[in-house]
């Protein structure tokens, strides 16, 4: 494990980021309508002659009349120099939007993961230790039920029940953690719970199956043969080993979570990256979408790298050349 491995992994970042940005760039331009057409047609108040003129004007203003390849190279060049450009829909630097939104979504994702892990890993352990007993069945049914309800439904139901049962709704005004942790958590805990319920299911299942697998391996048998108590076997030997794939999985999900929060952010009106991204897509705000997807991909790759490093650190058997 050393600098060479890290360097090799980091070398893979640029091609992946470029690939991801090309994909989203092309995809966005396949979606019918650019911002010029949408702005003009959705208003629909001016005569059709004026409309055509305005569309041409807006496109020229935003550089949308250039060939797509030129637009991409221009965008990439600027991005590499750290300039994400101007948002079409907010008429201010995309960097300012990112600075506002990214930390909020990161916080929500982190909170979700924290809740999910704290709840899912112990359940998975219980389920494995008591495999094929009623406890195991209850845990498995509970965790699958989380997978079976779409997040939008759990979210809407949560809001409804909070109002119905307590006549209470999380604060509508977003307060950042640094200003008031309590107010901030009052707001974020619910979307985090709704999401954690969903993603905890695979974590529970993975913990269970990994633990079952490890428990049957030789060193555990040895430990057991040495007369160590069941508890010690499970917790001291089996668990630490079985958690490795779980860590990988969590890292991988954590990256995806950032994209999945579109829906909870809308439902719980959290002004994060997800809701901004959905809005930017619907308004064809190309620079904002591209920058956000770029950042999300970067976070995803970094997280995966971190997970691999943690993995290597946890498991001395793994040697990277």
């Amino acid at each position: 494990m050393g600098g060479r491995y890290l360097a090799r992994r980091l070398l893979l970042f640029p091609p992946t980021l470029v690939g991801a940005s090309i994909l989203i760039f092309v995809l966005l331009r396949l979606v019918p309508g650019d911002i010029a057409e949408i702005l003009v047609y959705q208003t629909g108040s001016e005569s059709s002659v004026v409309q055509q003129k305005q569309i041409r004007q807006l496109r020229a203003e935003l550089g949308l009349d250039r060939p797509v390849a030129v637009q991409y190279v221009d965008w990439l060049g600027k991005t590499l120099r750290g300039d994400f450009g101007q948002s079409y829909s907010q008429k201010r630097p995309v960097a300012a939007i990112l600075k506002e939104r990214v930390p909020r979504s990161l916080e929500l994702a982190l909170l979700t993961l924290l809740i999910a892990v704290l709840w899912a890993v112990p359940l998975g352990v219980v389920s494995a230790v008591r495999a094929n007993t009623w406890i195991d069945y209850v845990v498995r049914v509970l965790s699958i039920s989380g997978l079976s309800l779409p997040i939008f439904f759990t979210g809407v139901l949560t809001l409804y029940l909070l109002v119905r049962l307590f006549g209470w709704l999380p604060p509508l005004e977003f307060v950042s953690f640094t200003v008031s942790p309590v107010e901030n958590l009052k707001q974020l805990i619910w979307p985090a719970l709704a999401q954690a319920y969903y993603i905890s299911a695979p974590i529970t299942r993975l913990t269970r199956s990994q633990l079952l697998e490890v428990i049957r391996q030789d060193y555990v048998r040895t430990a057991r043969a040495k007369g160590l108590g069941e508890r010690a076997v499970v917790y001291r030997h089996a668990l630490s080993n079985s958690l490795l794939p779980v860590v990988t999985f969590i890292g991988w999900w954590g990256g995806r979570l950032l994209g999945g929060i579109v829906i909870v952010e809308i439902i719980f009106s959290i002004p994060g990256m997800g809701s901004a991204l959905a809005q930017a897509v619907s308004q064809r705000d190309y620079p904002t979408v591209q920058a956000m997807v770029f950042v999300m991909a970067l976070i995803f790759l970094t997280l995966n790298l971190l997970v691999d490093l943690v993995y290597a650190w946890l498991d001395p058997r793994i040697k990277y050349g």
Binding site: P15, I24, L30, P32, G259, V262, L277, V281, M296, L301
Partner: peptide
């Protein structure tokens, strides 16, 4: 694997959303 990296690094719901809007 690089192609897989690219596809996996994009948030799935955004990928699906823009794809549906495009198609």
């Amino acid at each position: 694997q690089r192609v897989v990296d690219v596809l996996m690094s994009l948030p799935p719901i955004i990928l699906a959303l823009s794809l549906m809007a495009a198609l």
